[in-house]
Computed example of a mutant assay.
Amino acid sequence: MQSILILNGPNLNLLGTRQPEVYGRETLAMVEQLCIDHAVKAGLTAHCLQSNHEGALLDAIHAARGVHAGIILNAGAFTHTSVALMDAIFSVEVPTVEVHLSNIHAREEFRHKSYISRAALGQICGFGSQGYLMAIDALAATLLPKETQLQDAR
């Protein structure tokens, strides 16, 4: 089974307690378990990592090459500031879906700009934890047909 990496950036370790009216009441552990379970149903395995440090997220993206078939990235506030994360996604050439719990386009003006979206297959925002499941489904649709095509060619 192909694996995907689910990366969560700064402050997402505070899910459930940080601004629940914006980010919901689910904890990060709950969201990660939801993703792991959904990935299995989609024919994938999911590995989760959260860091408040940009460098750790960069290292995880670099390490994903050749290990994970896809990445789901909620870069948090780094979405709006990190050219380095965008460059890393372009560099490793691992299909990446950008996810946000809230609708960043309905929030403050500075949140409307995403450097990640320039390198991502697509962006899902505003659906809470369901957005991660949508991203898993999107990656499965992108990744699994290739696997099927390879099996058919044998």
Results as ranks from 00 to 15, higher is better:
153 A>Q: 08
87 D>A: 10
3 S>T: 12
121 L>P: 04
74 N>D: 12
3 S>Q: 12
140 A>W: 09
104 I>S: 07
145 P>T: 00
27 T>G: 00
19 Q>M: 04
95 P>W: 11
25 R>W: 00
63 A>K: 08
113 K>S: 04
116 I>K: 01
99 V>H: 01
2 Q>W: 09
6 I>F: 03
74 N>A: 08
16 G>L: 04
128 G>L: 01
121 L>A: 05
97 V>T: 00
46 A>D: 10
94 V>N: 12
16 G>R: 01
66 G>E: 08
17 T>P: 00
79 T>G: 02
106 A>K: 15
107 R>W: 06
140 A>C: 05
115 Y>G: 00
61 I>C: 13
68 H>G: 00
64 A>N: 06
51 S>F: 05
65 R>D: 05
16 G>V: 00
8 N>Y: 04
101 L>E: 00
69 A>S: 14
102 S>A: 15
114 S>R: 05
7 L>N: 06
117 S>Q: 11
126 G>C: 07
17 T>C: 05
130 Q>S: 12
73 L>W: 11
77 A>W: 04
105 H>E: 12
8 N>V: 02
70 G>I: 06
116 I>G: 02
102 S>D: 07
91 S>V: 05
41 K>Q: 14
9 G>M: 05
117 S>A: 15
78 F>I: 05
13 N>A: 04
56 A>F: 10
124 I>K: 07
117 S>P: 07
31 V>R: 02
119 A>R: 14
95 P>S: 04
78 F>N: 11
10 P>A: 06
6 I>T: 05
127 F>G: 01
117 S>T: 14
135 A>Q: 01
108 E>S: 09
